[in-house]
């Protein structure tokens, strides 16, 4: 495995340039531009000594609807790991350019709450390319360690449309990936402003043009800017604030993108073994996101379910 330790977070803008470069016809023939490889490289990036800044966390919490707590919002390490994601995908050996990839699933495992003030070591590595009904997927595994203890991990499943796949749709329109019925009804309505993508970009660093403005989203095939999937997930977890145990896994499937501005409906259903939740279009009921929170058996159990579930 190619293990590389960084001393500071990669800077995002050059990564964007490289991520977008494959869109230019013929550019992928260049050695430093992704898109040439058939398989993801066996690489792991490590960024030690990451100390989340309380002020930045608060800004992030505010945009996502979390209370500003002494602990990090469960989705926040993902934001910290994002530059590493970009760096991995900007690798010249990578088979796809990051722009144009679709984030289809995300599973976060919170082993214990992370206090603000704790120093994190972040590790990010890609998983192998797999076939998907709509194309090909690969995973991005992120881990956060505190003094050697794995406290948080995440698996993001990215889809590259076309170029393979058996064409079979997975799951029903209303079902979740794990075959459960998404909760019905409306627990809350969220009115999402046209600037949501820009506001989230400012606190997360994810400035993908599809989220920023209609003008930048149109060339990439969207009629308007769309909400970040990870914002939607964060917002849903914020809605469950106070109902979440100390250690749990929360997985979501991103369905249809949320066009901004817009109004969406949130629903949740708590059972004995977890909480199902869903985000839909408020008027038409079109699914945007399905998800489920499951408490971990014990706080100490070092589950690697995220990795196991990677398809």
């Amino acid at each position: 495995m190619d293990q590389r330790t960084l001393t500071r977070p990669p800077s995002i803008l050059p990564l964007y340039a490289r991520a977008a470069a494959p869109l230019v016809p013929g550019a992928s023939l260049l050695p430093f531009v992704p898109g040439r490889g058939a398989e993801v490289p066996d690489v792991e990036l490590t960024l030690p000594d990451v100390e989340p800044q309380a002020s930045a966390v608060a800004d992030y919490a505010r945009v996502c609807g979390f209370a500003v707590r002494a602990t990090l919002p469960p989705t926040y390490p993902h934001v910290l790991a994002f530059p590493l994601h970009m760096a991995v995908m900007a690798d010249g050996r990578f088979p796809f350019g990051a722009v144009g990839l679709v984030h289809v699933e995300n599973s976060i495992t919170v082993h214990r709450p992370v206090e603000i003030g704790e120093r994190l070591t972040l590790r990010v590595r890609p998983t192998k390319v797999e076939q998907h009904p709509k194309g090909r997927t690969f995973g991005l595994v992120s881990e956060a360690h505190v003094a050697g203890e794995l406290v948080w991990e995440s698996l993001s499943t990215m889809l590259r449309r076309g170029g393979g796949g058996d064409g079979k749709a997975e799951g029903g329109e209303r079902g979740t990936g794990n075959g459960r019925e998404a909760p019905a009804g409306t627990a809350a309505q969220w009115k999402l402003g046209g600037d949501l993508g820009r506001r989230y970009a400012a606190v997360s660093g994810d400035r993908n043009p599809i989220h920023m403005h209609a003008l930048t989203a149109k060339p990439l095939g969207f009629p308007r800017a769309i909400a970040h999937g990870m914002w939607t997930k964060a917002r849903a977890l914020a809605a469950l604030d106070g109902r979440l145990p100390d250690s749990y896994r929360v997985e979501v499937r991103f369905r249809r993108p949320i066009l901004l501005p817009g109004t969406v409906a949130f629903a949740s259903a708590a059972g004995d073994d977890g909480i199902d939740f869903a985000v839909r279009d408020a008027r038409k009921g079109t699914p945007h996101l399905d998800g489920r929170v499951e408490p971990l058996q014990t706080k100490q159990s070092k589950q690697t379910s995220g990795r196991k579930r990677a398809k």
Binding site: A54, A58, D59, R62, A67, V68, R69, A70, G242
Partner: peptide, 17 residues
Amino acid sequence: SAYSKASNQDMLTAALD
């Protein structure tokens, strides 16, 4: 200072929790 970004609700929630 330290809590300049925290709202009343944030702080009250933290104290209650």
